[in-house]
Simulated assay, not measured.
Amino acid sequence: MIDIHTHLLPGVDDGSPSFDVSLAVLERFAEQGVSTLVCTPHLNAAQASQAPVVRHQELFAELQQRAPSGMTLQLGWEIMLDSPNVDLTAPELSLGHSRAVLVEFTRGGLPRGASAELRRIARAGRTPVLAHPERYFGCTLEAVREWRKLGVVIQTDASVLMGRGVPSELARDMLAEGLIDILASDNHGDSRSLASARDWLLERGGEEQAVLLTFANADSVLSDEDPLPVPPLRSGLMDRVKRIFGR
């Protein structure tokens, strides 16, 4: 598996507070089958030109040196689009050494011009990977369809698929429509993982979806290739019953 969205660079944001916590998560991920992981600390677009690149590279080098054998680490950011028209083309703002940039909006609601901003990033030669759209108040399936037509890659948080509430329902509806390109853990030094979503998909007969969502499409994006289409995976009768009765 490949996890392109984690907050395991220690002590830099609201994610992992220490190397010990990060390394424990990395060991668990390695046991579960994660071969490549991207550290994506938070960054506001308005502060992109003052991003602490050197400090993060130093921390990353130490984490990489202490990571489990056989696991590849890469460095990137999760960029909050808090200000429009910011130049995000600097190589150090990308996911690893790719053209992809992981971006997000606030949970409070999609800003006016959200689609235009994503289009602008794509036209600047970057591949916008939109983190957890299921979280954003006002997000709809129609909006997700529009963004994907603009060249936006849709990344959903793995744990949301198995949750309850509006974000989880939207995520499962997106899965049923084939609108999710990549799953990621968004781990903050906690128990979240890709493995739980992979197993959830396999239990529902989603072998092809599991491969595409937890490995192949992330590999493609990090290699500057287009993600492959993910076949729709619709919930069965028992899933709907469990959702209704909360069991």
Rank of each mutant, 00 (worst) to 15 (best):
66 R>C: 07
66 R>Q: 14
67 A>I: 00
67 A>V: 03
68 P>F: 00
69 S>D: 10
71 M>E: 01
71 M>Q: 08
71 M>R: 05
72 T>N: 06
73 L>D: 01
73 L>Y: 01
74 Q>M: 03
74 Q>H: 08
76 G>P: 10
76 G>F: 05
77 W>K: 03
77 W>A: 02
78 E>P: 07
78 E>W: 13
78 E>K: 13
82 D>V: 06
82 D>T: 04
85 N>L: 11
85 N>I: 11
88 L>F: 02
88 L>Q: 01
88 L>R: 10
90 A>F: 11
90 A>Q: 14
90 A>Y: 10
91 P>D: 09
91 P>M: 12
94 S>F: 00
96 G>D: 05
97 H>P: 02
98 S>Y: 10
98 S>A: 06
98 S>H: 01
98 S>E: 03
100 A>P: 01
101 V>M: 03
101 V>G: 02
102 L>T: 14
102 L>P: 08
102 L>G: 07
103 V>K: 14
103 V>G: 11
103 V>S: 13
104 E>D: 10
105 F>C: 07
106 T>C: 10
106 T>E: 12
107 R>D: 13
109 G>D: 03
110 L>I: 13
111 P>A: 14
112 R>K: 15
112 R>H: 15
115 S>N: 15
115 S>K: 12
115 S>R: 15
116 A>I: 14
117 E>Y: 01
117 E>T: 11
117 E>V: 05
117 E>G: 04
118 L>Y: 04
119 R>Y: 11
119 R>N: 08
120 R>Q: 10
121 I>L: 08
121 I>V: 12
122 A>N: 01
124 A>K: 10
125 G>H: 02
127 T>H: 00
127 T>W: 01
128 P>V: 14
128 P>Q: 11
129 V>C: 04
129 V>L: 10
130 L>M: 12
131 A>P: 13
131 A>G: 15
131 A>Y: 15
131 A>V: 14
132 H>M: 09
132 H>E: 06
133 P>W: 05
134 E>V: 15
137 F>W: 09
138 G>C: 05
138 G>W: 13
139 C>D: 05
142 E>C: 03
143 A>K: 10
143 A>N: 07
144 V>S: 04
144 V>W: 02
145 R>A: 06
145 R>N: 04
146 E>P: 02
148 R>Q: 11
150 L>M: 10
150 L>D: 09
151 G>V: 02
151 G>I: 13
151 G>T: 04
152 V>I: 11
152 V>H: 04
154 I>V: 15
155 Q>A: 10
156 T>D: 12
157 D>F: 03
157 D>W: 07
159 S>M: 14
160 V>D: 13
163 G>M: 15
164 R>G: 08
164 R>T: 13
164 R>N: 05
166 V>D: 09
166 V>Q: 14
167 P>I: 03
168 S>D: 12
168 S>F: 08
170 L>V: 12
170 L>N: 05
172 R>K: 13
173 D>I: 09
173 D>G: 15
174 M>S: 07
174 M>V: 03
174 M>D: 07
174 M>W: 00
175 L>N: 04
175 L>T: 02
175 L>W: 01
175 L>K: 06
175 L>S: 01
176 A>V: 10
176 A>F: 08
176 A>S: 12
177 E>V: 11
177 E>Y: 04
178 G>Y: 00
179 L>V: 05
181 D>H: 12
181 D>N: 14
181 D>E: 06
182 I>C: 08
182 I>Q: 11
182 I>H: 08
182 I>M: 06
182 I>K: 04
183 L>T: 07
184 A>L: 05
